[in-house]
Amino acid sequence: MHNIDEHYLLEKLQALLDIPSPSGYCHDVMSWLEKEVRALGFPITFTRKGGAIITLPSNSTLDYTLCLTAHVDTLGAMVRSITSNGTLKLTSIGGFMMHSIEGEYCKVHTRDGKAYTGTILSTEPSVHVYREARDQKRVESNMEVRIDEVVKNAEDVEKLGITVGDYISFDARTQVLDSGYIKSRHLDDKASVAALLALIEWIKRENITLTKQVKIFISNYEEVGHGSSYIPTDIDEMIAVDMGAIGDDLSCSEHDVSICAKDSTGPYDYNMTTRLVELAKRDQLSYVVDIYPFYGSDASAALAGGHNIKAALIGPGVHASHSMERTHKQAIVHTAALLAAYVLD
């Protein structure tokens, strides 16, 4: 297995998880990413909507380019309205269950650069007061943010600079455990971004010049469906690096790199998927092949956008996706190792 630096990978994953980045609010995390990539000595450019393109060193003369893509945007919310008692109604960004964010600490990010902490609660948050508190439906209309400032009405909130359209980020609450497990929100898909950074670091450390043209695309709108609807026109094949789904009749565990043969948008490229399986077997990686019933990736977004590419999908197994997620460091390291094998293949 290729010599992926586990310590570097976990260090960068922790840093990524510490930076709020709901879809559309990724300027801070992209600035951080730019500094990291430039420190490794690789060029990075940005698309008009803020996605990052990293070009890896190659001596290839072939007019054929592989793209590895992961997304740095996460689930989140936005202020929908301010209530008369000074709480905030919200609208979701990305697809998650409302009960998965109930009781979560959050930050409200104003357009003048301030950030206020708060807690996401139902509108009937106490069994001591509300008879139907346990049975209240957890839907957007029944959820609100209690901000940690002295506010008694909408006017008090507005004086803080909070207004409709301000972003709400959820605390990641990351823990890297001695057992090798990492539990945190937003492992989808920052675990994969960390895997790609570890791949870049390995290429730099080993002074590798690739024999194929490889670009890395970090998207910032995947959770809302159009992260890679635009990609550079010279890309011929793409591997989306996103979380592996766990549960029901799926084979994936938190220790595996998952190779997806088909998701809700249809099958991935047969030859690419087959080669990924062969390389995982050859390098004795912990892998599974699965089918995701309710899932779409940046590769499928690129295909839907009309790009003439072949596409595949892999990623570390993540339990309780779009909720309180958990994976194991082995899954992320093996994902990076499989990508290393593919770019050298």
Rank of each mutant, 00 (worst) to 15 (best):
2 H>Q: 10
7 H>C: 06
10 L>Q: 13
11 E>K: 12
13 L>D: 13
17 L>V: 13
18 D>Q: 05
19 I>Y: 00
20 P>M: 06
29 V>T: 14
32 W>L: 07
37 V>I: 15
42 F>I: 08
45 T>Q: 04
49 K>A: 10
52 A>E: 01
54 I>H: 01
57 P>C: 04
58 S>H: 07
59 N>C: 13
62 L>N: 15
64 Y>S: 11
66 L>I: 15
69 T>L: 00
71 H>I: 06
77 A>P: 04
81 S>D: 15
83 T>H: 02
88 L>W: 13
89 K>M: 10
90 L>S: 03
98 M>S: 09
107 K>D: 08
109 H>V: 10
110 T>N: 11
110 T>S: 08
111 R>I: 05
116 Y>H: 13
120 I>C: 04
123 T>S: 12
125 P>C: 06
127 V>D: 11
136 Q>L: 15
143 M>C: 07
153 N>F: 05
159 K>H: 11
160 L>P: 11
161 G>N: 10
166 D>A: 00
171 D>L: 11
181 Y>S: 09
181 Y>G: 01
183 K>N: 14
185 R>F: 09
189 D>T: 02
189 D>S: 13
199 L>V: 02
206 E>S: 12
207 N>M: 08
209 T>H: 04
209 T>S: 10
211 T>E: 14
212 K>F: 00
217 F>S: 01
222 E>F: 06
237 E>I: 02
239 I>H: 02
242 D>V: 08
243 M>E: 11
244 G>M: 02
250 L>N: 14
251 S>C: 07
252 C>R: 06
253 S>N: 11
253 S>D: 11
256 D>E: 13
257 V>T: 12
269 D>N: 13
273 T>Q: 02
279 L>V: 06
281 K>S: 11
282 R>K: 15
285 L>R: 01
287 Y>H: 07
291 I>L: 05
299 A>D: 12
302 A>T: 10
302 A>W: 01
306 G>H: 03
306 G>R: 03
306 G>D: 06
308 N>V: 06
310 K>V: 00
311 A>I: 03
315 G>E: 02
316 P>W: 01
318 V>L: 07
319 H>W: 10
321 S>E: 05
324 M>D: 12
332 I>E: 10
334 H>P: 00
336 A>M: 03
338 L>K: 02
339 L>Q: 00
339 L>K: 03
